[in-house]
Nucleic acid binder design. Sequence first.
DNA 1: TTGCTGATTGACGTTTACGTCAACGTAAGA
DNA 2: TCTTACGTTGACGTAAACGTCAATCAGCAA
Lengths: 127, 127
Amino acid sequence: MTAQDSYSISELAKEFDITTRTIRFYEAEGMLSPDRQGQTRVYTDQDRVTLKLILRGKRLGFSLAESRELIAMYDPQTNNHKQLQALLNKIHERRRLLQQQLEDIKLMQHELDEAEQRCLDAMSTGA
Amino acid sequence: MTAQDSYSISELAKEFDITTRTIRFYEAEGMLSPDRQGQTRVYTDQDRVTLKLILRGKRLGFSLAESRELIAMYDPQTNNHKQLQALLNKIHERRRLLQQQLEDIKLMQHELDEAEQRCLDAMSTGA
DNA sequence: TTGCTGATTGACGTTTACGTCAACGTAAGA
DNA sequence: TCTTACGTTGACGTAAACGTCAATCAGCAA
């Protein structure tokens, strides 16, 4: 159902709730390279996936440069054999960061629980 | 062991691996208000906790403004009763965002697994 | 006294990630 | 034919989060 074979820039913008400017900016940064029909950009399903990855990275606090690295990891072709070990290292480092984030989230969830409880207490006591 | 009753700016900078400039910047933004001995800033244990919360927020991709909000939630005093419901709403919204991040992390971990496997395959096949 | 270390304020610079025009082209619809 | 919607390329602006000096002061050590 979500599988189209091409998308306009505004379709993607609407779907992901970002501006067309943002999408063009990602292209200028070399993260997207849509086809063209004349002047007009035409995005493939793969472009859409890439965009999804960028935005997920964003939600996790990654910079575009970091997301670029991550996306490169998903690409099997470009890996000339010398760099594979470096890639593995980056993958491990990423995993470590994600693990740290998981712990951060747990801590924060716990603190939100406490904050909520204090709120509820204050409401029942005060008013 | 980690409980001192005061810290210098450089102690905190070293502990959290940030610059003193950063710490002063957070103060200028109203997130910290250390005591002074003459000109010199003296940080309490509470300041240190606040700093910790700011940095955790940072790791989760929150802006300083968002962290400021979060930290305010942990404070029971300031809540005049009218705003408690608003606070609860913010807490729920935060929880929703954290939940989203959890899912993002799971997805990304899965993709890192796959990327790693492709790396390992390529290494055993190629070289 | 000289010199180092670590602190301060103030001013300006910088990077990231876009926003905001402006000026233009094109295709569809009333 | 007009205009409405959608697309394009610049060029410039901007907010956040610091970095990077410069000038200054205080305390301790040789």
